[in-house]
Structures are given as C-alpha cells and as structure tokens.
C-alpha cells in the first residue's frame, strides 16, 4: 500500500570545511524542515520512502569583527529505504538525497548593528544542486505517528 504523510522537525546544521580553510570555528545555525512523505511498502519490513522537504541549513561563525550567520534554504528530496528492525516500532532509514539551493542569506552582527545580504538562486556563488546522503532512525509510536532523528551529509561542496 501507498500512504501519504507530512513531517516537520528541527534542523541543527553546520558545515565541514575544506582542509586549509580551518582558521575559524563554526557553530550550529538552528532551523527547521517540513514537507510531505510517501511510504510505499515493498516487502514485509522494507519500504521505499521518498520525501519532498523544505529545509534551512547553514552555520554561524565568530570572527574578530562580530558574528557571521549564513542561512541557506533548500528543497531536499531524500530517496530513502526504511528497514524495520525486528518487528518493533524501530526502523533504520537510509538513502541518498538531492538538495536544491533556493536562496542564501548572510547576516553580519558586530554588536552595534546588523548587515544582511540575500542571494536568490545565484549560481555563480553557490552550487544549486547537491548530492548527499542520510542515515537515521524512525520510531513508530503508532500506525500514524512517528518520531525520528537523522544525520545528513552532502557529498558535494557548496
């Protein structure tokens, strides 16, 4: 059977920097994700579960001039397999993900004032589509409601 669903959650994004680009520390830039889900049962204990999500990512960095915050907005399409663990409510969720950058906002706060820049689909500055992967767990509280936790990492650089 095929079931539609919705999901929403808190995102705790950060970045992984290139070697040789580690002269500043970054912090989490908390955000959110929300979207629609599909659950297509294949065989007992295995389902194909693609999703269409809106998600914010990015990072914060303390510089000697103040705090820099970059918030990136994405359409994420995770293409997932959901594997039930031992007939319990616990499932392993794993698969690739394609992410499309829709906009980027940079905020700079030096303690006296704030400067903001917005880039909308600026393909010269930021990569517009990224391939990544995710792994996580989903706990089914009942037939309709679940709680889940995930880790996602892009394979390509932004």
């Amino acid at each position: 059977p095929i079931r539609f669903g919705i999901k929403a959650g808190v995102n705790l994004p950060n970045i992984i920097k290139d070697d040789g680009n580690n002269n500043f520390d970054t912090k989490l830039n908390p955000g959110f994700n929300a979207g629609i889900t599909l659950d297509i049962g294949l065989i007992k204990g295995l389902a194909f579960t693609p999703e269409l999500l809106y998600a914010t990512k990015g990072y914060k960095a303390e510089t000697s001039f103040g705090e820099f915050t970059q918030t990136t907005h994405f359409i994420d399409i995770p293409i997932l397999a959901t594997i039930n663990l031992g007939g319990s409510g616990l499932n392993l969720v794993v698969g690739p993900q394609v992410s499309f950058l829709t906009s980027t906002k940079n905020k700079f706060d030096n303690g006296f004032g704030t400067v903001e820049q917005q880039f909308d689909e600026d393909s010269d500055k930021f990569k517009k589509s990224l391939l990544g992967g995710l792994i996580g767990f989903r706990y089914d509280i009942n037939d309709k409601v679940d709680l889940h936790g995930r880790y996602a990492l892009d394979f390509q650089k932004n």
């Binding site: 079931r3 669903g5 808190v10 994004p13 992984i16 932004n158």
Partner: peptide, 15 residues
C-alpha cells in the same frame, strides 16, 4: 568551499 551537514529530529504523520 564546504559541505553541509545536518542533524535533525522531528515527527511524522501518515494519513
């Protein structure tokens, strides 16, 4: 250049 990584927690509802 950098790669995005995201920890997330949330809930889902299936119709």
């Amino acid at each position: 250049e950098f790669k995005n990584q995201v920890f997330s927690v949330g809930f889902g509802y299936k119709f």
